[in-house]
Design a protein around this nucleic acid. Structure first.
Lengths: 195, 195
DNA sequence: GATAATACAGACAGGTCTGTCTTTCTGCAA
DNA sequence: TTGCAGAAAGACAGACCTGTCTGTATTATC
């Protein structure tokens, strides 16, 4: 009964297993054999669903990307029409994420650090992810009617990326205030348009 | 004559070669065989100077750490007594570094992303490096006499770390203005002590 | 019931990795 | 001149890696 294997139940199991292993230990440190053992899957099944390990790593980042935007969109929806509040809310959920046990940085940035080749399929996912983040932040900055929304978006991108990689040097207790205040300061530092 | 091999000329050659290979391609992606071939060194010589590859990676980060502080100290010395100017100067040299050809992020953060084990020798170097950066920034923040120098130091640490990892999404031409303005905004956002 | 698709289990090939060891050579110091 | 420390060159062991292949079992559909 348990091995009923609905259409591509297997694929999901492989991907979910690989995702947690890749995130916890690093994609390069985790071998295919470990993935199939933990996912209780045959090696041939893995290679039926993913052409190469590199493709599996890319699929992992796509999964993380989708999760990320699900959270982002939910937070944005709560503050529709109030871009300042939305930005602070993003700072808050990011701060909360840093405090999670086992947090080990942004998966996109981690994988990008592991695979230097700009043509690696996973690296392209990571680049697209970061570009989209800046674009989303630019939309919020435009609603704030600051003089240079693109610059503010860039600053917020840098701040958020910095938060993701700085969990080791920022305490869980201070992250929220630190980031919220930083978002406020950066927004305030961008002069209003026409002012 | 060339193979004169002054005391530990060999060690320096190994370390310099490993450093550039590790930085360009990632420490996990580069094998010992490639290092010894490029350094024109025997494998036994490498293992005479470095007990394991992990130690070589740690030595690479120590080298980068030393380089980093050499630059930092030089910039700080140029602005002794003027912490606001010093912070902006740091933003400037970091922005300039991002624009270098082949720039691939902060080596400390890259290696930390590659080696998840908190007991890895290189990881400890990276953690110490980041702690020291925050401590140095705290000293500057204290001179600014802001209400919460530790928070401002944390914000600047996040900002600078974010700059290191965001080179892919920040143009070379905009980095300087973006970072300098961000430093100014964060400093201005930290209310003066007693104000 | 027969057929096709998919899963599992695991052997296997071919390559790469770290780290050890042997052998030969070179330069320096007593 | 005689030792000797360090270096070069490279064989080697043993582990591990990705990806392929064979064979068997299970499931779903006709």
């Amino acid at each position: 009964m348990p091995p009923s294997s609905r259409p591509s139940d297997v694929r999901e199991r492989i991907l979910a297993t690989a995702a947690s292993l890749f995130y916890e230990q690093g994609a390069r440190a985790v071998g295919i054999d470990l993935v199939i053992e933990r996912a209780k899957v045959a090696k041939a099944s893995l290679y039926r669903h993913f052409a190469t390990k590199d493709d599996l790593v890319a699929a992992f980042l796509e999964l993380e990307d989708a999760d990320f935007w699900r959270t982002w969109d939910a937070v944005a929806a709560e503050h529709a029409g109030d871009p300042a509040a939305e930005l602070e809310a993003h700072a808050r959920w990011i701060a909360e994420r840093l405090a999670r046990p086992g947090y080990r940085g942004c998966p996109q940035l981690n994988v990008a650090a592991e695979f230097a080749d700009p043509n690696h399929p996973a690296r392209r996912v990571a680049v697209d992810h970061k570009r989209r983040m800046r674009a989303r932040l630019r939309s919020s900055a435009e609603l704030l009617e600051v003089a240079d929304p693109d610059q503010l978006a860039g600053q917020l991108t840098v701040l958020f990326n910095g938060a993701f990689v700085s969990s080791g040097v920022i305490d869980a207790g201070e992250a929220e205030a630190l980031l919220v205040m930083a978002v406020r300061a950066l927004a305030a530092g961008s002069a209003r348009r026409g002012a």
